[in-house]
Structures are given as C-alpha cells and as structure tokens.
Write a protein that binds this DNA or RNA. Structure first.
Length: 434
RNA sequence: GUGGGUAUAGCUUAGUUGGUUAAAGCGCCAGUUUGUGGCACUGGAGACCGUCGGUUCGAAUCCGACUAUCCACCCCA
C-alpha cells in the first residue's frame, strides 16, 4: 500500500488491541499517587522556550541539541516540553499555589519530545508519569517519594529493579567539588575522550557519567561528591538513608549518578533494570531546591521524579508480567433482515443504557459471518433474531462457551431483567438444584 | 551527530548458480450449511519485491547511492 505519508520518526501508535496495557499502568500509577496525597495537574505541551533554557539548564544536552523549538506566527519562540518538571513548576508559580498551603503535591501523565536518534527505550515522543512535591524540605519527603515508587513497582509485580541514590549537594558544595574534579581530571587531559574534554571546563561532573572505558577508569579514582558535601547536605543525605532503612527499602549509593538536568540538587536517584537494554533507567528523579527561585519565585525546596511509560511497558513485557485484558462483549445480536436488525439495534440500546456491553451487526453480513464475528470478539452470549423471533417476540440466547441455550424475551421493557435471571441461572447452575 | 544490522502481501517468512504470470502459512472477506461461532474444506482480495540509478538480452536476486527501520554510542524517561 502506498501511503502518502508515514509515522514520524521516533513516534509510536498505540493500537486499540493494546491500549488496555496503557490504561492499566495509568490506573495503578494514579491510584498510588492519590494514596500518597497527590492530585493530577495538566499543563500545556508547549511552553515558552525560555522556561526550559532556564529551568532545565543552558548547558544540558536536552536544551542544547534535543529541543523541538520553533517560532510561532506571532513571533514567539516556543518549545515542545522535553520533560515535565519545568512546566509544572511554572504552573505552580503562575497560579500562586504556594499561597494555598504547603506542600503542593501534583502528579501528571504527559508526552515529552526530544530530538534524539531513536533506539530501544528511547523515542522522540515519549510518555512520562511524574510527581512533583513543592515546599517539603525534610528528608522524609525524599524517602516518601522513593517509597511511593517502591509500592508502584511492587503492585505491578516488577522484579529485579535496583534503586541507586546519591547526593550531589547544594550549589555551595558543588562549587568546591567542581574545583576538585577539575584539578583531578586535568592530570588525565590527554587520555579523556573528546566529549569529556569539553565537559571538563563546562560541567566536570558529567565526566563521571561517561561510558567510555578509559574515562570510566579514570573516573573511578576521582574525588567523590560525598566528601565535599556541606554539613547541611551531608546530614540531609544521612537522614534520607535512615528513612529508607527504617522502611526496609534497599538501595545502593552510587556516587556516579549525576542527572543531566541542571535543576537537581542534594538527593538524586534512579531505578534501573538490566532487563531493559541500553536505556536501563525506568525512573529518575531527585530534589531540585533551587529551581523555583531560578524561575523567579520565592525559594521553595522541592523534589520529584519522572517515570518513562514506554520503558515501564518494555519492562513488564521483558518480565512477562500479564495484564488483564478488558472484559469482552456480553451480548451479540445476530440479525437477519432489516426489521430484525432494527430490533437488534433497539434492544442493544436498551441493554447498553443499563451498562451491558452489547454489539449487533452494523456491517450487513449474513448470519454465519455474524456468528463468526461474535466468536472472534469473544462475546459471552449471542441472540439470533429473524422473522420467527420477531413474530413470537422471543428468541434463544446462547452461551458461546458451552452452547447452553435459554429463551429470552425481545420485549425492551423486560429484556434486562430476563437477561439477568438467565445469567444467574447460567453461571450458578447449582442454585437451581437447591 | 557517529557506528553496525535489516528491508519480499496486514503479520511471519520462502524464493535455488540472475530467466518469463513472485510462493506459502497465519490473518482478512466469502462460500460449503436457503437460520447459528470454534473444526474442516473451497474460493477471493491483498506485493509496482523500500526508493532511484547502474550492469545485463533479462534483476526480488549482482553493484552504487539514498531512504526507512532496528540496535549501539552520546544523553536521558
């Protein structure tokens, strides 16, 4: 087939036969968020470009080379959101939510856009579930957010995830740490890869994240951020760990997690899985105490995480975690002739109004193809209507899985109660005996 | 942006050393059953063999370029 155009690179269609998987995880995720006191927030897909430049950070890869930015007809520069935190923070400030009381707890499902080369677990349009908590300085907030993720993964039945945490300190600690890193890496200037060389002057912390074996090896001997944390940050991190310990949450401290978005501070964490391929992070987050101020608000310590929905689904797939399929059609009306088809439509409407999942023929097929269709969609019961049935105002209803047949009225006033009685009789034959 | 793999019906694939109307299974539509699904049988629709160019009497097959897609780097969800 010669289509005039195809799907845009790095995007995916979610088809009717698979959308139930998305609906399932969205339900688990939002239920869990609600249990933790979060309410949904919805913000626009695009924002003023400045928001991301400031919020995410000018030196980050996301801002420098991955944003979908364009000029509107009115001459404004706008950007399709590459992540969810900046827009949420903007909305919180713009709507003066801090005045309504703290903390502000918001969760979201959103589509994000990054101009990257697609590969497994990495798309140009991807979907993310996230939560943001504003106005909570206490380490308990960090632990609470992490424990929420633990219960999410537990409810979903996801195994073999590891939680890695680190503290990257506040602005002050980082200044000293940067200096120490520069001094250290300067010594290996000739061995570092090209990208790391440029990182050296701009943001030496990123070298720690480099995957090139040589840089990795050099990075092993680099000073650790933990040793440069100020007393305040050190204490915060210790307390976070204590909270996790007392909640029985396993973690490993990974001094090399850095997070590529500038707004992070103090606690950062990732949930990673070896079942995912190269893009092993399902979920990443942390604290961003400086962001709100950066965007022009009063200082407001905050934190959150983003969880990649495509990656989560990939993970469920890899671990063969089954998701319950939606309930099939309850009653299928097969009809012969126009009058019977009209009757089927009428009765289907009555049943649907009562909440019974009902279908009838809208294609104009013969009886046999209609029955095949009923079988294909997994209809639980079928009712055939023809001239005889119209005359008697009664028909046979057949249980499609065992072939049991019952008589049912075609009277629209009585069909529902009739059907319910038949259903009870059919599903609980033992009751009839007693 | 840099590598590597792949490209034949909706899906999964076959296609022999280049040779005429490109094949199968599944799926789809229908018939066998003038009023009843699953099984079986029969038939039908559906592919300019990713695109363009080259070699050749002749290309799905050989060569080149491009494009798409997958995987990896980078980065992140």
């Amino acid at each position: 087939m010669a289509l005039i155009t195809k799907r845009i690179k790095g995007t995916q269609d979610v088809l009717p036969k698979e959308s139930y998987r998305w609906q399932f995880i969205k339900k688990v995720l939002s239920d869990e968020a609600k249990n933790f006191g979060y309410k949904e927030i919805r913000t626009p897909v695009f924002e003023n470009t400045k928001l991301f430049e400031r919020g995410v950070g000018e030196t980050t890869d996301v801002v420098q080379k991955e944003m979908y930015t364009f000029e509107t007809k009115g001459g404004d520069m706008i950007t399709l959101r590459p992540e969810g935190t900046a827009g949420t923070a903007r909305a919180v400030l713009e709507n003066a939510l801090p005045n309504e009381g703290l903390p502000i707890k918001a969760y979201y499902f959103l589509s994000c856009y990054r101009y990257e080369k697609p590969q497994s677990g990495r798309l140009r349009e991807f979907h993310q579930f996230g939560v943001e908590c504003f106005g909570a300085e206490n380490p308990a907030a960090d632990a609470e957010v992490i424990s929420m993720l633990c219960s999410i993964f537990e409810r979903l039945g996801v195994k073999n995830l590891s939680l890695e945490i680190n503290s990257i300190g506040c602005k002050e600690c980082r200044k000293n740490y940067h200096e120490a890193l520069k001094v250290y890496f300067e010594k290996y200037k000739d061995e570092l890869c090209e990208t790391c060389l440029s990182r050296l002057s701009r943001n030496p912390m990123r070298i720690l994240d480099c995957k090139s074996p040589i840089c990795k090896k050099i990075a092993e001997g680099a000073p650790k951020i933990i040793d440069f944390l100020c007393d305040d940050c050190k204490e915060h991190f210790e307390k976070v760990k204590t909270y996790l310990d007392t909640n029985g949450i396993n973690y490993t401290v990974n001094p090399n997690i850095v997070r590529g978005l500038d707004y992070y501070s103090k606690t950062v964490f990732e949930f990673v899985s070896t079942d995912l391929g190269a893009q092993s992070t399902v979920c990443g987050g942390g604290r961003y105490d400086g962001l709100i101020e950066e965007l022009g608000g009063q200082p407001l310590p905050s934190l959150g995480f983003g969880l990649g929905l495509e990656r989560l689904l990939l993970l469920l797939d890899a671990q063969n975690i089954e998701i319950e399929k939606p309930a099939p059609c309850e009653i299928y009306f097969a009809s012969m002739g126009d009058d019977a088809n009209k009757k089927a439509f009428e009765l289907a409407s009555v049943l649907r109004t009562a909440g019974v999942f009902t279908e009838f023929d809208i294609v104009g097929r013969g009886l046999r193809p209609q029955m095949k269709y009923a079988d294909k969609i997994g209809a639980k019961y079928s009712i055939v209507i023809g001239d005889d049935e119209l005359q008697k105002n009664k028909a046979e209803i057949k249980n499609m899985s065992n072939g049991n047949k019952y008589e049912i009225t075609l009277d629209k006033e009585k069909i529902i109660s009739d059907f319910l009685q038949i259903k009870i009789k059919d599903e609980l034959p033992s009751l009839e005996v007693q």
